[in-house]
């Protein structure tokens, strides 16, 4: 049984088709990269997979059960979603932000208990944000903030983590720490799907890739087989040089 499985998904706004008959799955323990050019539909697909958007046609299954027959709380106990960039209108402390990840486990007026605090400590530890615990969230750099958002997602104790371009505004150092963190979480058993437009990062860290182009799946498979000159020419319309990474032996693209 797959962690997530999408069957014949159609999605459109008004008359603009965004997702055109996509079937895909996220198996357990997978580290999947969803790649494709801007406007291809990859971020939309991610939002469909976590139930923020509802498909117009088709069905999504979460561990074998129809996603939309489950409550939003139950979904949030299984899937955590990390948006591209979070704007913090209110300046909460880092610990308070991470504690919000416990929301799907709380009833109105029910105070946080030991279990919540243990989950929060574990999440802050995993994302390496403990040292910021009492800092106001907006005093952190964008890379540090992104780690806090991932810690909040981990506090949900999810089995699946979905991330939308988690490294897009970050410098080299923070790109690296975030991807290493995801790799570690994946090794601990969390299934991960991450939308990327940086093909080289996706190639370095993802076990498998799905390439979405114009709302359809163009190709899927291991980075080594999927990233080639012909694909880049057809999807992105440019000529590139592709070499193998000297240490990790995966394809890297040069303009």
């Amino acid at each position: 049984m797959n962690a997530l499985e999408a069957r014949s998904i159609q999605f459109y706004y008004d008359k603009t088709q965004i997702i055109d008959n996509i079937s895909m799955s996220l198996s357990r323990g997978e580290f999947l990269g969803i790649i494709g050019p801007n406007g291809a539909g990859k971020s939309t697909m991610l939002r469909l997979l976590c139930g923020i958007l509802r498909p117009k046609q088709g069905e999504i299954q979460l561990f074998g059960k129809n996603l939309h027959e489950q409550s939003q709380r139950t979904i949030a106990q299984n899937i955590a979603f990390v948006p591209q960039e979070t704007h913090f209108a209110l300046n909460f402390s880092v610990e308070d932000v991470v504690l919000m990840g416990r929301y799907p486990y709380k009833r109105p007026f029910q105070p946080e208990d030991q279990k919540d605090h243990t989950a929060v400590e574990h999440a802050m530890n995993a994302a390496n944000v403990e040292q910021f615990r009492n800092r106001p969230i907006n005093s952190l750099s964008s890379g540090e903030r992104q780690r806090v958002v991932i810690a909040r997602a981990l506090a949900q104790a999810p089995r699946i983590l979905l991330l939308d371009e988690p490294t897009s505004h970050l410098d080299l150092h923070h790109q690296h720490t975030i991807m290493e963190l995801l790799e570690r979480l994946n090794n601990e058993g969390i299934s991960i799907a991450v939308v990327h437009h940086d093909l080289n990062l996706a190639s370095l860290y993802c076990k498998n890739l799905i390439l979405i182009h114009a709302g359809k799946i163009y190709a899927e498979g291991k980075p080594a087989g999927l990233l080639n000159k012909k694909m880049v020419r057809e999807v992105y319309g440019i000529e590139v040089t592709i070499v193998s990474h000297p240490e990790k032996n995966v394809p890297q693209i040069f303009l």
């Binding site: 939002r47 976590c50 139930g51 923020i52 409550s71 939003q72 709380r73 139950t74 979904i75 949030a76 106990q77 899937i79 955590a80 979603f81 948006p83 979070t86 704007h87 913090f88 209108a89 209110l90 909460f92 308070d96 932000v97 919000m100 990840g101 929301y103 799907p104 709380k106 109105p108 007026f109 949900q156």
Partner: peptide, 23 residues
């Protein structure tokens, strides 16, 4: 008053709120 948690969370955007299970 029961919505105090939802109000905290929604200040981080509706997508974050939806992802955490708020209708």
């Amino acid at each position: 008053y029961r919505y105090h948690r939802e109000l905290d969370i929604i200040s981080q955007g509706t997508e974050t709120a939806a992802g955490l299970g708020i209708d």
